[in-house]
């Protein structure tokens, strides 16, 4: 009684497929196959995300990362008062945090854009070449 289910087959009209055309491939299938082309797509995604990350880290370094040097070279900053506080305090105890949040916000948006672009490219069927 243990008869096997017949395998499902896709039935298509012999006339719908143009003669001589190969099955269409997406970049995603190239990545899955580990082909050279797939590697190029993956490397491009990595490069764009890494460049974005590096940009944020450089910005962090030249803004907040430069502060110790600035305070060292210009000790007078503590003598300047803004809103009754030394300027160095305004920068370090308060102004740093919005800067960090802004950098993070811009990074999240840009990283998601990179991923959308990647998704768009790899899911589109390529013209058989």
């Amino acid at each position: 009684m243990s008869e096997q289910r017949p395998e499902r087959v896709r039935v298509t009209s012999p006339w719908t497929e143009r003669p001589g055309s190969r099955p269409r491939r997406t970049a995603a299938s190239e990545i899955d196959a580990g082909s050279e082309l797939g590697e190029i797509y993956l490397a491009a995604l990595l490069r764009s995300q890494l460049r974005l990350a590096a940009g944020v880290l450089v910005t962090l370094t030249v803004t907040i990362g430069a502060l110790p040097l600035v305070f060292r070279l210009a000790p007078g900053l503590s003598r300047h008062h803004v809103l009754g506080m030394p300027l160095s305090w305004v920068l370090l105890a308060f102004a740093c945090y919005p800067v960090l949040a802004l950098l993070a916000w811009r990074y999240v948006r840009a990283a998601e854009r990179n991923e959308r672009d990647f998704t768009h490219v790899v899911e589109q069927p390529r013209e058989p070449g």
Binding site: L52, A53, V56, L57, L60, I64, P68, S78, P86, S88, W89, L92, A93, C96, Y97, L100, L103, A104, Y107, V108, A111
Partner: peptide
């Protein structure tokens, strides 16, 4: 005094580095 303000700044900025390099 002021030199200790680097601690909270660093503890927060650590999350920015984490975000761009490892989070996702």
């Amino acid at each position: 005094g002021g030199e200790m303000l680097w601690y909270p700044v660093g503890w927060t900025a650590g999350y920015l580095v984490l975000l761009v390099l490892v989070a996702a």
